[in-house]
């Protein structure tokens, strides 16, 4: 469980990135923090592993204030997935995945062997193990990023715009695989995105943020779609747009779902 308790972040130049934000992220759940740039979502995420320190308020993990933990140890105990993978360009794929175990003192050989297993787990050919990140496609880099975050078997995964740098087709595929993986590993995941579709695709719970990390609405994707709290959320999730307003039309005795522009998107199962 991760708990944000009235965290506040003000920079020396007076800009307030996060204003008294509180949230509880239950264990084994996926929570999406979604908002446009300036919403403070990334700042919130980085407070969890102390890459950003709040000006006031506390972040705690399972009841322990993160400030009481050693910064470096804390970071090694939390998986972090960055946009475009955030791989170290001078290390091979296997060494990238083995980063944290090696830092923790595991033998390089053992860590590399474990890394191969992780690569398979995220759907990568182990033949890629000795390549360098620049030799991989964007989607492959992103998978390596996920494998690296899982290498030390952390309880918590933080993901910063995890699939934002890849093209839409690969993104859909990665999101589907991520859901399957999570069903299997059940980590506590916090991720930030500006893409509401990604938030709905991955999040058990979605937190829509305004400027300064003010919570506009939180809830399951379905709840937010069904009942946007206000115009801001409604605009943000695109409620009322053709893509979100689906209707049923009977065709040959079956119920076909069509969008606001009357374009069919699927068939209703009974």
């Amino acid at each position: 469980m991760i708990e944000f308790d009235a965290v506040h972040k003000e920079y020396p130049d007076g800009t307030v990135a996060v204003e008294r934000f509180s949230l509880i992220v239950p264990s084994h759940r996926v929570v999406a923090l979604v908002g446009s740039s300036g919403s403070g979502k990334t700042t919130l995420l980085r407070m969890v592993n102390r890459m950003v320190e709040p000006s006031s308020g506390t972040v705690s993990i399972d009841g322990v204030d993160v400030r009481s933990m050693d910064r470096v140890k804390l970071r090694r105990s939390i998986g972090y997935v960055l946009q475009a993978g955030g791989l170290l360009p001078h290390r091979t794929v296997a060494d990238n995945v083995a980063t944290v175990p090696v830092l923790e003192g595991r033998s390089r050989r053992q860590a590399r062997a474990d890394a191969l297993g992780l690569l398979e787990r995220v759907g990568l050919d182990t033949a890629l193990a000795d390549r360098y990140p620049a030799q991989l496609s964007g989607g492959q880099q992103q998978r390596v990023g996920v494998a690296r975050a899982l290498a030390a078997d952390p309880n918590i995964l933080l993901m910063d715009e995890p699939f934002g740098a890849v093209d839409p087709i690969v993104r859909d595929q990665l999101q589907a695989e991520m859901r399957a993986l999570q069903a299997d590993i059940g980590k506590t995941i916090v991720f930030v995105t500006h893409d509401i579709d990604e938030a709905f695709a991955l999040g058990d719970e979605v937190v829509v943020l305004r400027t300064g990390a003010e919570i506009a609405q939180r809830g399951a994707p379905a709840e937010i779609l069904a009942n946007p709290a206000d115009d801001f959320v409604s605009d943000f999730v695109g409620a009322g747009t053709a893509q979100r307003t689906l209707r049923i039309r009977e065709v040959d005795g079956r119920s076909v779902v069509v969008d606001g522009d009357d374009r069919p998107t699927g068939v209703l199962e009974r």
Partner: peptide, 16 residues
């Protein structure tokens, strides 16, 4: 900068 960020996030100490 993003590489520095990734290194910090994976728990490299300042020296590391």
């Amino acid at each position: 900068q993003d590489v520095r960020l990734a290194a910090a996030a994976t728990g490299h100490s300042r020296w590391g």
